[in-house]
Amino acid sequence: MIEMNNIAVRCEGVTKTYGSGSTEVHALRGIDLEVRKGELMMLVGPSGSGKTTLISIIAGVLDRDGGECEVFGSDFNEMNSRERALYRSQNVGFVFQLFNLIPALTAAENAAAPLMIRGLKRREALDRACEVLDRVGLGDRTRSLPSELSGGQLQRVVIARAIVHNPRLIVCDEPTSALDHETGHKVMELLHNVAIGIDRVLIVVTHDARIFEFASRIASMDDGHIMQVVNSHHDLEQKKEN
């Protein structure tokens, strides 16, 4: 039995439909999911199964059509756009498949962006970003532009940007798909080491079975449904065999 105060994310009957009429696509058809504090939850499934739509709704960047979804007790649908933006700036970190680092900014400036959004002075934000970059092993590349960094280094900058403001929820969309196996593994190790915390939750959308070992639990999705939630990739494989 899970204690209610241990739940970070709770989704009940979440639905989302794109388009209308003949172009209507049901991306989510009633999702029930709970993610506990301190967990690294992976969402896996084929393309078009609704993984990215689900983390977009959980992260508060997309409106749901129906159902309920609470993140640390807050419901984005009850907030106006300003409150939602403020909530995201304080509580949500993002790791993107294509990094989304601003090309004109250095690694430190990119990593400091969430702090500047929260209104911190530039100097202070950059100092804190440099500290975090140091933690992810890029202490010597703080002044490098994205174009001067490798894929693995870019993803480290993105991780630094995702954790610099101590968010309670970090959503990662295919964090290793643009990286080779070894680099991807290292990035996940780093994410596991620096991002997981008692009062924090990580939700990772991935196709990459090689990183399943880092998951606390794995939710398998298909056609807008959660098919099953397992505790390890061994369970997932076992259930597939059965």
Binding site: A85, R88, V92, F94, N100, I102, P114, R161
Partner: peptide, 18 residues
């Protein structure tokens, strides 16, 4: 050309006004 980065800032909590 920079819409993706504006979107990223928006996702990270930058308000429309900002």
């Amino acid at each position: 050309d920079n819409i993706r980065y504006f979107g990223t800032l928006k996702a990270m909590g930058a308000s429309d006004f900002m």
